Structure formats: structure tokens, C-alpha cells
Amino acid sequence: MTRAEDFDENERRAVYRAIRERRDVRRGFLPEPIPDELLHRLLEAAHNAPSVGLMQPWRFIVVRDLAVRRKVHEIFLKANEQALASYEGEQQQNYAGIKLEGILEAPQNLCIVCDSQSSQGHQLGRRTMPETAIYSAVCAVQNLWLAARAEGVGVGWVSILEPGLLRSTLRIPDQITPVAYLCLGYVNAFSKEPDLERAGWEKRTPLKSVLSLDQYDSDWSEGGLA
């Protein structure tokens, strides 16, 4: 039986290295802008993501204008203040010390949104699982993130944003879903471990704790995995 051609050893190592060393970057952005050619290459990687029914529901909004980024930063500050108030004691202090965005530091931002009502793809796969449109857009985020790591570009995902205010600021129509607001730029270094792990906020779960065979493992508790 003829097997499909695979990557050579160096190519395989590079793929796994990008996955292993991908980081959510919030600090250390350099002021040097990403060249248009490189940005286009990253967006092309995102655009090559898998999508249910080949609907390609993602849309990319490149945000460079400082005035617009300042408005988004204000949205973050308000949402972050509310998030801080939801914690208590030591956890609140820990949260207050974590840097969670680089909206103004990064030379450009990128908002990836999803048109889940698009007619492209002719509803294939969406009649039973309509949420797969959003899943497809998230795959585009991951593609861009891994390509960016390979190019030495840092990416930070800012989720502490009120969607309605973000819609208003970026003039996103009601039927379009904001999926990811990203900060992009060259960085002075990539950390060896995730920021949240280094800060003591959470630690990685080993693979064996999230793996079962043939059926769901009832020992997986809602509060965390053993």
C-alpha cells in the first residue's frame, strides 16, 4: 500500500516546536511594525484553516489606528475592573498582578470575527451542529498563532472585552460574531512557560488526565481533573 508523502524529520520537528513553544504574549512587544508581506502571510495561514462545509466564515479586521486601539483599551480596562472585583483575597491580588493585554504596546491588533450565517458551504455540517461555524473561525486563530510563532511574531488573545462595546467600536454588524481580539508584533523574547503558569494562576493538566477510551470518563469532575 502506498502511503502519502510525509514531512522530513526537520520539518516535523519545526511543526511540533511551533506548537510546543506557542505563547499568549502580553508584554515585550517591539515598536517595529510587522511588514505587510509578513502580515499577509500570517493571514493566508489563517485563511487556510479547516472549515465545516468549506464555508470559511472568518473575517479579518486589521487594527492599526492608535485612536481605535485606545478605545478598545478603554473597553478592556472597564471589563478588567469588573473581573478583578469578582475575585477575593489572595486570588484577587494575584489577578491584579497579571498583565492580560498588549493592545497599545503591540504595533497592530487584529480582530477575527465569524459570519455564521454565510451561505457559503450550503449549510453542510451546520444543520446538526451550527456552532461549527465558530469552531472553524477558532481554527483560523490557531493557524495564525502557530505561523506567527514560526515567524518570531508574538500574539496575545484579549478576551476581557465586552462584545457589545467592541462591536460598536469596530462597527461590527449584529449578525457577525467577534471571536478573537489579538495583539500582534515582534517581541524581545518568548517565555519558556505560559505567563499564567509562571504567575501561579493555573498549571497545565497532563494528557493522561484528559484521555479516555471509547466513552466519557465519569471520574472527570466539573471542578477539575484528577
Score class of each variant (00 low, 15 high):
164 G>S: 10
151 E>R: 15
159 S>L: 12
166 L>K: 03
159 S>D: 00
187 V>Q: 01
187 V>T: 03
185 G>M: 04
151 E>G: 15
171 R>N: 11
162 E>Y: 11
159 S>T: 09
180 A>R: 06
167 R>P: 01
159 S>M: 12
173 P>M: 10
183 C>M: 11
184 L>P: 10
162 E>F: 11
182 L>M: 14
171 R>H: 08
179 V>P: 01
182 L>Y: 15
183 C>R: 10
182 L>N: 14
170 L>Y: 07
162 E>C: 02
161 L>Y: 05
185 G>K: 02
154 G>P: 07
162 E>N: 15
164 G>I: 05
185 G>D: 01
175 Q>N: 13
179 V>A: 14
153 V>M: 03
165 L>T: 13
158 V>N: 13
170 L>R: 12
185 G>N: 08
162 E>V: 08
175 Q>S: 11
176 I>P: 09
183 C>L: 11
171 R>M: 07
161 L>E: 02
184 L>H: 05
178 P>D: 05
155 V>E: 01
186 Y>F: 13
185 G>H: 03
177 T>S: 09
163 P>C: 00
186 Y>M: 13
171 R>T: 06
179 V>T: 07
188 N>H: 10
166 L>S: 06
180 A>S: 07
164 G>L: 06
161 L>M: 13
157 W>L: 04
160 I>E: 09
159 S>V: 09
180 A>T: 02
154 G>F: 01
167 R>L: 00
153 V>K: 09
177 T>M: 08
156 G>T: 03
160 I>L: 14
174 D>G: 07
155 V>C: 06
173 P>F: 08
176 I>C: 11
167 R>S: 01
155 V>T: 01
183 C>E: 08
159 S>F: 09
151 E>N: 15
169 T>V: 15
152 G>Q: 05
174 D>T: 13
185 G>E: 04
173 P>L: 09
152 G>V: 07
156 G>H: 05
162 E>W: 14
185 G>Y: 00
152 G>T: 06
180 A>W: 06
174 D>E: 12
171 R>F: 10
157 W>S: 03
170 L>W: 08
172 I>K: 07
164 G>T: 11
161 L>G: 00
153 V>R: 08
174 D>M: 07
156 G>L: 02
169 T>F: 12
160 I>R: 11
168 S>M: 08
173 P>S: 12
184 L>R: 04
166 L>M: 12
